[in-house]
């Protein structure tokens, strides 16, 4: 079974003459434990594809199946609690870390757990453990403004992992980092995919960053033009 299945997904922004076909007939599948990249130049439709999979951006046509459950078929299925699926099954990592500036590192992770109904104590111990495993044990009580870019992105990754999601979606997670830190983040994601057995889909425009990925989809003008499998 796949964690992510996308079948002939099309997203059109706007209507009539100003309509923009951002993604056309895209199909892809990601298995649990796989690290997959969507690579393409600016404006090619990478974010559109990612957010359509992430229940943020309603697809115009096509199907999306997450963790075996259909969520979109010619638009979202009626009656779905999108927020609930997002917080239970999906983890998001952003270009900018998007940490909440007035919460400390540990609180930023705890909030994701608490909105998913974990008690404070449970949330605290899981967040502590998670941050420690990402080498942030000494940064628990720092505010984001006091963290380095790499540290902040690791806290954001911890937040995305907090609810042990089946699917992790990352949009340019290395764009705000230098090459070394960017590569570190990518190899961390690789490790997490294997250890946690989650499907990780990463959007990037930087081909230097996709070393070690299991598969790479290349996108041009809204169309998936190429799929590269890693040769072991």
């Amino acid at each position: 079974m796949y964690s992510i299945e996308v079948d002939r997904l099309t997203k059109i922004y706007g209507k009539g003459e100003t309509a923009v076909k951002a993604i056309v007939d895209a199909s892809l599948q990601v298995k649990p434990g796989e690290l997959v990249a969507i690579l393409g130049p600016s404006g090619s439709g990478k974010t559109t594809l990612l957010t359509a999979i992430g229940l943020i951006n309603e697809p115009t046509h096509g199907k999306v199946i997450l963790d075996g459950a259909m969520v979109a078929d010619e638009g979202w299925l009626p009656g779905l609690d999108l927020k609930r699926i997002r917080r239970e099954k999906l983890g998001f990592i952003f270009q900018a870390h998007n940490l909440i500036p007035f919460l400390t590192a540990i609180e930023n992770v705890m909030i994701a757990l608490e909105i998913n109904h974990l008690t404070r104590t449970e949330a605290k111990s899981r967040a502590t453990e998670l941050l420690a495993s990402l080498n942030l044990g000494h940064r628990l009580n720092n505010y984001p403004s006091a963290l380095s870019g790499g540290e902040a992105q690791r806290v954001a990754i911890a937040r995305a992992l907090a609810n042990r999601p089946k699917v992790i979606l990352a949009d340019e997670p290395t764009a705000a980092l230098d090459t070394d830190n960017g590569k570190n983040v990518m190899s961390l994601l690789k490790k997490l995919a294997v250890e946690n057995h989650s499907a990780i889909l990463v959007v990037t425009h930087d081909h230097r960053m996709v070393e070690g990925f299991d598969r790479i989809f290349e996108v041009r003008d809204g169309v998936i033009v190429n799929e590269t499998k890693r040769v072991a």
């Binding site: 943020i56 927020k83 609930r84 699926i85 997002r86 917080r87 239970e88 999906l90 998001f92 952003f94 998007n98 909440i100 500036p101 007035f102 909030i111 994701a112 909105i115 998913n116 937040r159």
Partner: peptide, 16 residues
């Protein structure tokens, strides 16, 4: 706004 958008994206209930 950004904080609120992030909260919504990671699945916060409106009451939060």
């Amino acid at each position: 706004i950004r904080v609120i958008a992030t909260l919504k994206l990671i699945g916060s209930q409106n009451r939060v």
